[in-house]
């Protein structure tokens, strides 16, 4: 016998690709008890107006997020690496296609 506490199922985060060629974009979440239900619920909720060509659903508990408290050590070190951007380089005047 499996004991079940009545609930609305797990939260699944939904990512929708609006057109092939474009990246999947976070749309929101749905509740579902299994993969197929998550996919169907996401389809019914987030693509009612022709918004999608592909959907990903991911259980919320499987998503790993960085924390805002770590954001300085995570993201600030890239602040001074301006040489990673093309605008850092000085091109000879008149040079084309570069």
């Amino acid at each position: 016998m499996i004991n079940i506490k009545d609930n609305q199922g797990d939260i699944w985060e939904v990512f929708v690709q609006s057109k092939s060629g474009l990246p999947h974009k976070h749309a929101g979440s749905v509740h579902a008890t299994d993969k197929e239900m998550a996919l169907q619920n996401a389809r019914d909720l987030y693509t009612r107006r022709n918004e999608g060509t592909c959907i990903w659903v991911v259980p919320l508990k499987e998503i790993v997020s960085s924390m805002p408290s770590e954001s300085e050590s995570f993201f600030d070190p890239s602040d001074d690496k301006i040489y990673r951007h093309p605008t850092h380089y000085i091109m000879p005047e008149g040079a084309k296609h570069i």
């Binding site: 499996i2 079940i4 009545d6 609930n7 199922g9 008890t33 299994d34 239900m37």
Partner: peptide
């Protein structure tokens, strides 16, 4: 219905 769906998921 919810209990059935949860149980089914658990069985799977």
């Amino acid at each position: 219905v919810r209990e059935a769906a949860l149980t089914y998921a658990k069985k799977q």
